[in-house]
């Protein structure tokens, strides 16, 4: 008897709750749109990798890129070497006339 009384109350409560929190209907083709966008993202990253690999495997571009990297690194190395070399050269001279200089 108790259960019989509860059922209409449950149904009423469910209706009330649904009315309070309406669930909007999904637009048509929602799922397929989501999958399409995921595939597009994968295709884009694949495209970037292929493009990069293409550049790396193009001898002219690869040589130019590598030459630029080597030139930049060598330039930076030369500047640093000149600075430290200048300091070393000065220390070497001063130490040759004052042997206690390097012990400080």
């Amino acid at each position: 008897m108790n259960e019989e009384m509860m059922q209409p109350i449950d149904a009423k409560l469910r209706e009330l709750l649904q009315a309070a929190r309406p669930e909007p209907a999904l637009p048509p083709g929602f799922q397929s749109n989501v999958w399409r966008r995921i595939e597009k993202g994968e295709q884009a990253s694949g495209w970037i990798l292929e493009r990069l690999a293409g550049w790396v495997l193009t001898p002219r571009l690869a040589t130019a890129g590598l030459a630029a990297v080597v030139l930049l690194a060598a330039g930076a190395g030369a500047m640093r070497g000149m600075r430290t070399g200048e300091q070393d050269a000065r220390d070497r001279y001063v130490a040759s006339v004052d042997p206690s200089y390097l012990q400080r």
Binding site: V69, A73, A74, G75, G81
Partner: peptide, 16 residues
């Protein structure tokens, strides 16, 4: 790049 940097740096420092 590292090889070029270190190599040139040492060479220049030694030369100086």
């Amino acid at each position: 790049a590292v090889l070029a940097y270190v190599g040139t740096m040492r060479l220049c420092a030694r030369q100086m």
